[in-house]
Amino acid sequence: MKRLTVWVLILAMALATVATFGTMAMAKQITVAMLPKVLGEPYFIASQKGAELAAKELGIKFIFDGPVTADVTKQIEMIDNYITRGVDVIAVSPNDANAIAPILKKAMSKGIKVITWDADAVPSARNFFVNQVTYEGVGKALVDVLADEIGGKGEVAIVTASLTAANQNNWIKYMKEELKDYPGMKLVDIRPSEEDQQLAFQVTTDLMTAYPNLRGVFAITSVAFPGAAEAIKQAGKGGKVAVTGLSTPKSMAKYVHEGVVKNVVLWDPGDLGYLAMYVAKQLVDGKMPRPGTDGTITAGKLGKIQVKADGEVILGPPTVFTARNIDKFDF
């Protein structure tokens, strides 16, 4: 008898907790499940907001969730569960282009449309890729901006995410290409910061000690950039060691106004999420250009957007934020 009471109690507690946290899915309209690489980064939160706006305009039922760590296997599991639940479109920013492919192919075989955004999967595993800027565009913008700050001369280093981060590695590849145009600039080191601000701080400090002639730092993740800027500021080397990189304007505004950072490179991640939703809707409605042909789509407030024959939808060139315009952006 007493044991029964306990079981009932446990059941009740479990139900209560579940009821508090759970939200039941009720599908009728188009359902789009959108996955970022990882939760808790301002970049992806801005994308979420943009996508929510578009979802409201288009009457889409919108689910946004991602893994707690940037782990492709967790994304795979989540997507498999979305397939079981039955959604209409899966939009994912994969942590690995190849590893995500089998599960995306499974989704497509069950009639689910698949979009990648922010980062691509192997092309055969998705219908369209909503790309912010080409990798080349980012690499070029970063190098040009820093070269301009330090007069195209001196030792520079890169603080990246983890050594396995695919986007970062692609950008680094094109940064190296672009650096060839500046023979006076020498890339002396590439260090990972593992998406950890303390590590980014520490590594940047150590880089300045290890390379006394260091003139510039590229911090190419939204987590590493503020950490690197803080390290340069606290070392009293603001203005002597230039730093640029990719991060959201809001988290960098302080350093830009203090003069530690002159330029922040990024696109509007909100527009990226917004665009992804328009692609999702038009994909389900059969309004996207046929694969293998160039074309354009109209995406609400963004107007006409180019779609390339290989299924790439491109948002546009990156924005460079400076002291003049950085306060105008709310992400």
Partner: peptide, 14 residues
């Protein structure tokens, strides 16, 4: 929890 539509964050708590 995934199938019930619970977020990953709530899932971690639970």
């Amino acid at each position: 929890m995934d199938l019930a539509g619970m977020s990953q964050a709530s899932g971690a708590v639970l």
